[in-house]
């Protein structure tokens, strides 16, 4: 049977793909191959997690050159006889998925949060209709390219049996030139790693943010927001957005203040273990999506909570 290939240039996401590949293979002897490009450390890491890892070393293949990476992975998939390619559904991975799938003649899906093999086909779970629904979609082609949402699977644990071997591919002419890379100034918060999220919406004011932040700190978490708070009001940087066009998180606790709860938002915390929502509109959809729902002025609750916890 054809193999499963996993690739992500993201050190935290690549080990998650490995777990997904193993679940999909189901111990049926399907080979799993990890690929790393110009990143020996990542290749070693994946090998340390038991993966047969192919390292492509070719300075001509820039990570930023989607066409070149797609070409390298296409060749790798052919050489390794892989029919299924798993990628990470971060911005880089989603962009790569379409190009690679087109090259391979594969069906593709991104933002996939669950996988299962069914009669030789792969079925993927993902949100559609702007997050209003969860669909199970089946890839009908013999080949499949699937980009998996971050934290949908645990990172593969350390285990023996892996090794790194080099794989040579024919480089293609570069399609883009990288002029400059600028790190983003914001303190690079990893919302998806936070166990507790204090999330504020338009029902609170900018003046309430220090209090919300303090509560987040007391509970050992991070502050996040709904989209309009960052894009329209610009009260928080955009990397704090939860929802369809922001981050999808699975915290232990989401404490949500003054968010009305449109699906484009709730899709981002649907997988939280416990959801607490405070809203002054008893009809706010957010309250229905909560384990604990409080109809009250979000600003006042923030203040009181801060006094009680602080």
């Amino acid at each position: 049977m054809a193999a499963i290939l996993v690739y992500s240039d993201h050190e935290k996401l690549a080990p998650e793909l490995l777990t997904a590949a193993r679940l999909l293979a189901g111990g049926k002897g399907t080979g799993i191959k990890a690929v790393a490009i110009n990143n020996a450390a990542l290749a070693q890491d994946l090998a340390g997690r038991g993966a047969e890892t192919c390292l492509i070393n070719d300075a001509a293949i820039l990570a930023a050159d989607t066409a070149a990476v797609a070409s390298a992975l296409c060749q790798a998939a052919e050489k390794l006889d892989a029919a299924i390619v798993l990628l990470s559904s971060d911005r880089r991975g989603k962009e790569l998925a379409g190009r690679l799938a087109q090259k391979l003649g594969a069906g593709s899906l991104a933002d996939v949060s669950g996988l299962k093999a069914e009669d030789g086909k792969v079925q993927c779970t993902r949100n559609t209709l702007g997050g209003a629904t969860v669909a199970v979609q089946q890839i009908e082609t013999d080949k499949a390219v699937i980009a998996l949402a971050a934290r949908s699977f645990e990172a593969a644990p350390q285990q023996a049996g892996g090794k790194v071997s080099e794989l040579a591919v024919a480089a293609t002419a570069p399609s883009v030139r990288l002029i400059e890379t600028r790190s983003k100034a914001s303190e690079a918060v990893d919302l998806q790693a936070a166990e507790v999220l204090v999330i504020v919406g338009q029902g609170v004011g900018k003046e309430d943010f220090p209090v919300a932040e303090k509560i987040a700190k007391i509970l050992g978490g991070e502050i996040a927001c709904s989209k309009p708070v960052a894009t329209d009001k610009k009260w928080l940087p955009e990397d704090r957005i939860i929802g369809l066009s922001g981050k999808k998180c699975k915290p232990q606790l989401a404490l949500i203040f003054g968010v009305s709860g449109q699906v484009q938002f709730t899709v981002g915390i649907r997988d939280a273990s416990t959801v607490v929502a405070v809203n002054n509109d008893e009809n706010a959809f957010m309250l229905q999506m909560a384990d604990y729902a409080m109809v009250a002025d979000a600003k006042e609750v923030l203040e009181e909570l801060n006094r009680a916890l602080g």
């Binding site: 969860v134 669909a135 979609q137 405070v278 729902a293």
Partner: peptide
Amino acid sequence: GRAVSTISNLAPENARKRVAVGSVDELI
């Protein structure tokens, strides 16, 4: 033909407890 077909498409089941909380003390 379609490279991807949709098997099912449903609003997620709401498994939230939806317990009403009356005060901040209760919340804590």
